[in-house]
Every structure is written in structure tokens, then in C-alpha cells.
Amino acid sequence: MYKIMTAGPVQVRENVLAARSIPCTNPDQDVEFYEFYKETCDLFSEALHTESRAIIMGGEGILGLEAACASLTEPGDRVLVIDNGIFGKGFADFVKIYGGEPVLYTTDYKNPVDPAGLEAYLEKDSDFRYATLVHCDTPSGVINDIPALTNILDKFGILSVVDSVAGMFGQPLDCAKSKIDILCGGSQKALSAPPGLTMVWVSQRAFDFMEHRKTPIASFYANIMTFKDYYENKWFPYTMPISDITGLRQALDNFMADDSVYDRHAKIAAATRYALVKGGLSLYLESGYSNTVTVLEVPEGITDKEILEGMMQDYNIMISGCFDVLAGKVIRIGHMGENANAEDVAATLAALQGTLEKHGIKVACDLAKEFKNTYENGAA
């Protein structure tokens, strides 16, 4: 087995795996499961300090993004796609599938979206049904200021869909100070459960909008409204993946019992970046660094494939490459959830250094040693 230090999925704790092995009932008929599911959803709202209703859907995190667009988009709707990363741009595909007209607001991929710039743009054109934006755009690792951006959108009467799949539970997200209408997450990132579930948090304003659409939602499986009255009616739109949800609940319990989770992620991320830069390697971003994933440029004299394969073959450690406009240009280290521990990150940096030096790429310091020292004592 590889040690997976990728940008997701991540390592899974033993008690989560054990929870998934508990004998399961029939989730369609067992009233106790409806209680368990609702209790788990309520805990998800509590965990993110939001009054929005949480829903767990059976499908990987992409399902939540598509479901948000499917449920809000009507044919001909103009939708603002805030694009400062590959996943930000990707929302346009979902908008088009459901008959909307995506309008891209594209900014620098190496920095967060500037709230003042967005506001100036909307002063000239704010005729949008809703807007999409990403909290942590995983391919680059950039973090956007969701409270600031969503409050600007709300000022212009624009609903918001936020992808925090790779942010939430590792990167603080102040939902109480934000105006998020649909927030999307996934099981396999900082929450550290296996892939296969998406969580969405839906505001009352979003539910009201969906109820008063002029046209039917053009999907069944990606239709958020099918979950609206599940508890009152004791009816799910499809058979829920009960073992996945049982494991997800344990992962959520793990998160809620960890008072230091955000501080640990921040320290791990800062020490990782510091060590890499001191070693003479180049981070991809200029600002807006994520606490869940670090993205560095592939050095000259080696390919991303050589780095990834070398680390797997020689050290049994798996990290991530990238795709789209960053294909072959960067590699990514995931230090989120169960990966956010000093021992595993130090081992990953040692493996990275060994792989680079095997190919004649000089590293200016002992990456693992520099990381450990910085993590324990702070930057010099």
C-alpha cells in the first residue's frame, strides 16, 4: 500500500474504516436510519456554524457541484463563473449542460480573487441569476476570501454557489459571516473519509428559489429538491449508501473532537512552504496559499512523471500531478485531514528530495529537517 499524500483522497483513520464495516440495515425502511441521517446532517451544519440545511448525497464531490447548478439553472440564465483556477473555470461546463449561459470573470491564477475588482465589475454588469466560486482551487492551491466575495454578490442580489471540497475542515470558513446559498463539500479531502459522498449546505433563500422555478429541474439524481422533505416523508430519492454514511459520521466526530485541527493545518502548511523555498524550489502561487495543499513548480531537468513515479517506486509515497493548463508544470502535496501530521509530511519531503537528487537536481537544504524545525519552532 502506498502512503497517499495526494491532494485528495487522503489517508483514512482506522475508526472510520471500522465504522464502515458495521452491519447495515435497509436505509429505505428503517426509521432509525432517518434519525441517524438527520442527526448527522444537523451536525454538519453545526460544524460549519451555519443555519443552512446540510444534505448528504450518494456520489463523489463533483455531484454536489453539478447538483447545485442543475437545481438553480434555468434555460437562458446568465451565470457568473468566477474563474481564478481550473475548478473555478470548470463550473461553466455544468452551467451549459443545464441550459445556462456562463459568463467568466477570469483573474490571475496565481493569486486570490480581489474583492474590490469583483465589486467594480458588478457595478457595470450584475444581471446574473447566481454566481459560482471556489474556496480552495485544488490544482493551484489558491484560497479565496469567501466571506468578502459572497457578501459582495449578495449586495447585488446574486445567489452564490461555493465549492469548498478541498478547503472545508482544513481551512477555516466563516459561514456565519458569509452569504453562501449552496456550499459544496466532499468526503475524501480534509474530512478524511473514503471518496463517494458529497455534502451540500442549502440556504432557505436557495430552497425558495428552487421551489419557484419556472421550469422543472432537468435532473433526478442531481436534484437537491428531492431531499427537501425526506425526513417528514421518511423517503429518500434513492437508496442511501449506508456504510459510507456511517463512516462519514465517524470522520465528522473525529473532526469535532479535534480542537487544534485548524492550527495544525496552518502550521503544517507554513512549515512545508518554508522548507521548500529554503531548499531552492519554487511555489506556484504568489499569494493566497492553502493550508490543505502545497503546489510547487516542477524544476528544470526533471518531469512531473519522473517525480511521481520515483516517489512511488523508491519510497512508496504518492503525491499528485496536475491537469488542464497546469499539466506537467506543477506537483502537489496534500497535507489535509489525516495527512496533516509532521511525520508523514517530513517523510514526503525526504522522498521528494531523494527523487530530485537522484535525477541530479540539487536541493539547498535538508527538506525534512528544515520542515520539522520550522513546524516545532517557527520560521527562523
Rank of each mutant, 00 (worst) to 15 (best):
M1D: 08
M5R: 12
A7P: 04
P9E: 10
E14F: 04
R20P: 01
C24A: 11
T25Y: 03
T25L: 11
T25V: 12
N26Y: 10
P27L: 11
T40F: 00
D42E: 15
D42M: 12
L43S: 13
A47Q: 02
L48S: 08
L48W: 05
A54R: 00
M57Q: 08
G64C: 12
L65E: 05
S71N: 09
G76K: 05
R78A: 12
D83A: 04
G90K: 10
A92N: 05
F94S: 11
K96M: 13
P102T: 02
D108F: 14
K110E: 14
V113F: 02
L118W: 09
L133S: 03
I143F: 08
L149P: 14
N151G: 12
S164Y: 00
V165F: 01
F169G: 03
K177H: 14
K179V: 03
K179F: 03
I180D: 06
I180P: 00
C184Y: 01
G196C: 12
M199L: 14
M199C: 14
R213D: 04
F220E: 14
N223V: 10
Y230F: 15
Y238D: 13
M256F: 05
A257N: 14
H265M: 03
R273C: 10
G279T: 06
Y284P: 05
S290G: 07
T303K: 04
G321S: 11
C322Q: 06
H335F: 11
E343I: 15
L349S: 08
A351P: 02
L367T: 05
K372E: 14
T374F: 00
G378L: 05
